[in-house]
């Protein structure tokens, strides 16, 4: 019976499925590319090479680059870094489509970590703009995290594909937006500037609409994830207006590898945990904890001792005719024989 699936023992280490793609073994070679070669995607034939090339961000960092937007280094954001992030999303998309062998999520998170997101948020005076763009960035990080967790080379990834496609669209729009933004919020003097501003407003509407689509896509993916993580993501989705980008990222990022591990664990239980009820099943179900509820196990002087709570077998015998009895325990039993 399916109960077999529930056997766990300490001697049986959960066998991790091989990672479906090379993830960390490829180090970025310390290429010294001419400045600008990674700036624009004119060279689309070398997408594969690009993925393992050292992005400028990994190069000697002492030579700080001037922010592209503002002359004031305290206020600007490095558009170059945003472009690198966009490029990462693009190569992830190509990667999950199978046209590339190497998918580097690590690179994405590395670059994101270097971006001064608080400056990004501060750049926009217009509240609606700021919210839209911030939400887009948060959704992008969530989507990359979900892709990293759920991506598999063995099964189709249509959902992740369209997720990343939308993310990438947003990313391009955001960069365009940042580039056209002067960051000063000064009054618009002529009709030409007004038109540019109006175009920006259109972009924001586009981004916000896409954000909405993305949110729904993410919500539809969440149920396959462990509850703790899907609840975390839901909380972030609800609060994109109130959470800063770095905060969101630091909530999303740390559990990724753990989630992958859990999901690739062959012992990861498939829902529902219990087999369907049959016509012989009892109407009621009673879920019982084990340790410190029915029994108590402790080790004394190296010997395991098991105490059984008074009336325990009485309890089980009386209730078994009326309840489907389920033991649900967090205990660290070394070996359990079913």
């Amino acid at each position: 019976m399916s109960d077999k699936n529930y056997i766990i023992s300490s001697t049986l280490k959960p066998t991790k499925l091989p990672r479906s793609f090379v993830y960390t073994s490829v180090r970025f070679k310390s290429a010294r590319l001419p400045r600008g070669s990674d700036t624009d995607r004119t060279d689309s034939s070398s997408v594969i090479n690009k993925s393992i090339e050292l992005p400028s961000i990994f190069r000697n960092h002492s030579q700080a680059r001037a922010p592209c937007i503002s002359q004031n280094p305290d206020r600007g954001i490095d558009v170059q870094q945003l472009k690198e992030l966009e490029e990462c999303v693009w190569s992830l998309l190509e990667g999950i489509r199978g046209s590339m062998l190497i998918v580097s999520f690590e690179k994405y998170w590395e670059i994101s970590r270097l971006i001064k997101w608080e400056r990004f948020e501060d750049m926009f005076r217009d509240e609606s703009m700021r919210r839209g763009l911030r939400e887009a960035v948060i959704l992008e990080h969530i989507s990359v995290a979900l892709t990293e967790i759920l991506y598999s080379s063995k099964s189709p990834n249509q959902m992740l594909d369209s997720l990343l496609l939308n993310i990438h669209q947003n990313s391009l729009s955001s960069i365009q937006h940042v580039m056209s933004h002067n960051g000063t919020g000064e009054a618009f003097r002529d009709t030409f500037t007004k038109r540019i501003v109006m175009r920006r407003k259109d972009q924001i509407t586009e981004i916000r609409q896409r954000n909405l689509i993305l949110k729904n896509m993410i919500k539809s993916i969440l149920p396959v994830l462990p509850t703790s993580y899907s609840m975390l993501i839901l909380r972030i989705l609800k609060n994109t207006d109130h959470i800063t980008i770095p905060k969101a990222v630091s909530a999303i990022f740390p559990s990724i590898s753990k989630m992958r591990e859990i999901l690739s664990d062959p012992l990861f239980p498939k829902e529902p945990y219990l087999p369907p009820k049959s016509e012989f099943s009892k109407e009621y179900t009673l879920v019982l904890d084990l340790d410190e509820t029915l029994i108590h196990s402790c080790s004394e002087k190296g010997a395991d001792k098991l105490n059984i709570r008074p009336y325990c077998s009485d309890f089980l015998n009386k209730l078994a005719p009326h309840y489907e009895l389920v033991i649900f325990t967090a205990g660290l039993q070394s070996v359990i024989f079913i």
Partner: peptide, 30 residues
């Protein structure tokens, strides 16, 4: 001893949340 307990769910069915375990009953299928 009388095999009254139908199902047994162990550690891997428990979600860890903020370092505390949670038994999510909605996942039992009952």
């Amino acid at each position: 001893t009388d095999r009254l307990i139908f199902h047994r769910l162990y550690r891997q069915h428990i979600q860890i949340e903020n370092f505390r375990s949670v038994k999510d009953l909605s996942k039992l299928g009952r």
